[in-house]
Design a protein around this nucleic acid. Structure first.
Lengths: 331, 331
DNA sequence: TTGTACGCGTTATCAA
DNA sequence: TTGATAACGCGTACAA
């Protein structure tokens, strides 16, 4: 049944009517008699008609397509967000053009060009830079705030978790577990999420009467699990007093935990660990961490971008979702 | 610079020529003087022209788009394949419509409809059922063989790893490690991959002089990590003689390993474990496993589907990639 | 070498 | 209620 797709013209001919009427019936648009409707639907049913989205889109200046830019789809955190986004978009009648940027801005730019050529209706973006080359294109930022300020007043749309509160929870947890010399480890302190987590962390430590020495911020050279080992080595070598570490990401935390267990460092007796994200591996490794509601973030991003596309009022532009402490074996 | 996209007509007017010439210059198609080319490119450069893919596709009856059906993008195995597929497709000028089917065939069918409406140029499919409703659409099957036979002669295109050889490696490894009462655990024995792994497994055991009792095939009720616990419990309760387990997937294996360590069962002294896939968690948990070349599978799937789309001869229709034993702490 | 005009499939407008 | 037709943006056959 795929030889050649039928067109409205074919349907019109077979139903003994005109293309205009067929189009009206298909879109339930305008007036037509019950009788012609029946006839048209019958023909469509019988011969199998599939609408041509390219033609429809060309005509309507839209594509029912949303471009999604994500650093790496094979990363548990991003893939869980993206999966939910795709499923939600699909439920609402949109297709997803998912692209891996590898955190490279020129890759992102290349994809943005493609989105424009494809006439994408909107964009969902996880990345560091603000998208400036596509004005009046609905864009939803997820996870990271593309602006520089601690709390940007930007009029753009975004979905994030409450990073500051997450930092606070981590700080409280470590402080109450008896940590006196806390350290913070993350990949890139320039990213909004990491800045905010550190902010909340320091805030909570201060409240608990713990002094946080800024020298104990360790920035790793990459974001993978190997970075955890690197960070632990550095901490052991240069700040032997450290008895608690807050990691900006579970990948790094798990790498660290793995290394510490392997080398016989006692966790949590000697050093306590708190991560951020709550990935699959975190549960498996028994890592105490701050859970982000990834599925919900993905879903909300989809809903938001569609609201923008369909010109509905956006109630909350900056959606901040609650995080949750998950205590396991490292505190 | 986004107010309104310019069209070939605009460019033609601005360059003082016709749409035909502009089109020819853009596509380097047909003849045109150096002079007009310069003029046209200059205008395009100056005013910024982006081609409209919908119009071009409508005209050319193509879309530069490939539909990708995958059970779940937030699963390490599928996401690593899919990521590479997307990146490769993009390098070759195609966009990816990635969709999560959740292993549900009616979801897949829904997406196939969307692909058809979008006029997708080809499809990459990870799933159990053969796609029959889209004839003369380039399709590449990945990982699983959609036909029923052990070795289907199908004329369709697919990319898989050498599952039988993987099973053999697992069998040899366990046998040589001293296992006498091996068991096999997988989610769904109906899936081609699992059948083949079991086949190779039995083959190797036989060669090594070990008897494999078919009663020791355990089929779990789901594919997640919890299934591992379920399988271990069942094995301990009903076949206490078992001293080695081969798992059809690392998720299940890791779940089992986690449970065994938690409950104090000695691995590998008491029971030896071999998994399949080699995921991120496998390394972390020290699981001995059979590694699949996921990135390569993803890349080849992309290359193959494009070869089909662009009507190039397919050298190998059924591409079978080698697997590799990775020995860690569970053997 | 260049330009005109048509058609890809759809929908909206206008007239009947 | 229905139908003819124009237009969305592009590429190409054909003519010049």
């Amino acid at each position: 049944m795929n030889e050649k797709n039928l067109t409205v013209k074919d349907i019109a001919r077979l139903a003994g009517t005109s293309v205009a009427t067929v189009s009206r019936v298909i879109n339930k648009n305008g007036r037509f008699s019950k009788e012609t409707e029946r006839k048209v639907l019958e023909v469509i049913e019988k011969y199998g008609y599939v609408i041509n989205q390219q033609a429809r889109g060309l005509r309507a200046q839209r594509s029912n397509t949303v471009g999604i830019l994500v650093p790496n789809i094979s990363n548990d955190f991003y893939s869980r967000i993206t999966k939910e986004t795709q499923v939600t978009l699909s439920e609402m009648g949109y297709m997803s053009l998912i692209c891996n940027t590898e955190e490279k801005y020129d890759e992102a730019e290349k994809y943005l060009q493609m989105f424009r050529r494809q006439n994408a209706d909107g964009i969902i973006y996880i990345g560091n830079n603000e998208i400036t080359q596509l004005t009046d294109m609905p864009i939803v930022y997820v996870d990271r705030d593309p602006r520089d300020q601690e709390e940007s007043p930007g009029d753009f749309c975004m979905v994030e978790c409450d990073n500051i509160q997450g930092g606070r929870l981590a700080g409280e947890t470590l402080a109450r577990a008896g940590v006196r010399y806390p350290a913070y480890v993350c990949f890139e302190i320039g990213i909004s999420t990491h800045r905010k987590r550190l902010l909340g962390f320091k805030e909570a430590l201060f409240s608990e009467g713990i002094f946080f020495d800024d020298k104990r911020v360790v920035v790793t050279s990459d974001a993978g699990m190997h970075a955890g080992e690197e960070a632990v080595k550095k901490i052991l070598a240069t700040m032997p007093e450290v008895d608690g570490i807050f990691f900006g990401s579970d990948f790094i935390a798990v790498g660290a935990l793995h290394y510490m267990r392997k080398t016989g460092i006692n966790v949590p007796e000697q050093i306590k660990l708190v991560g951020f994200d709550d990935l699959l591996i975190s549960e498996l490794m028994g890592l105490t961490t701050i859970r982000q509601p990834m599925a919900q973030m993905g879903r909300l991003a989809a809903v938001k971008v569609i609201d923008m596309i369909e010109n509905r009022e956006i109630e909350v532009k900056r959606q901040r979702l609650p995080v949750e402490l998950v205590e396991r074996d490292t505190t």
